[in-house]
Amino acid sequence: MRNDDRIPGRLIAVEGLDGSGKSTQIHLVHQWLQGLGLRVFFSEWNSSELVKEATRKGKKRQLLTPTTFSLIHATDFADRYERQILPMLKGGYIVLCDRYMFTAFARDAVRGCDGAWLRNLYGYARRPDITFYFGLPLEVSLGRILDGRPSLKFFEAGMDLALSPDITESFRIFQGRVMAQYDAMADEFGFTRIDATRQIHEQQEVVRDFVAERIDLARFHLRARP
């Protein structure tokens, strides 16, 4: 993963379990940066139009193996990275990513894919300048998802791993394993840990302070030259 310092943009990613509140936090960061009049672009995991149909079909019909599950998400990422994320970074934007390659590293490793193989798969992509990891006790994240009358999806709950015939129980076990993977990666990739049990606005304050400290925001003003 080479970072080219001639690229004027900056990349911020959020990672964490389902129910960690990371999407809410990155949304608030997006609003904040837009409000400041900065060049900012947002990209979401698994959202490329071209790849979506294949992913949808594969998931619906439960056709995916660990390897094809991994590859289809890598395809989605490559499409978004090369058509949007990288050009935006080169064009001097702050790019916000709701989930980045670390989501694949965590989930696919739980499915049995080899770590070195996964790191190579995403090896061409720039590492984020900041990766916020929203950490919280497993039970709390499970509660946030499971209390709200959940409609868990097959692959989301790790049902393909046959951990338990009960989808809720499968989800619990799967999330626990994903969390262990995230924790193991935190140092390797220099995650900035945010305590996701705190109030939303308190977390956001910590996040904003950190961003403002690490990134020279004035450089990204729409009126400034990239």
């Binding site: 790849v51 390897t67 395809t75 499409d79 090369e82 058509r83």
Partner: peptide, 22 residues
């Protein structure tokens, strides 16, 4: 003809492994 070479490459790899495994 709108996919980048890498996206195309990964699309084909997905197709390949799907056939390999299934």
């Amino acid at each position: 003809n709108v996919l980048s070479p890498r996206t195309m490459s990964l699309f084909y790899a997905t197709d390949f492994y799907d056939q390999l495994e299934n």
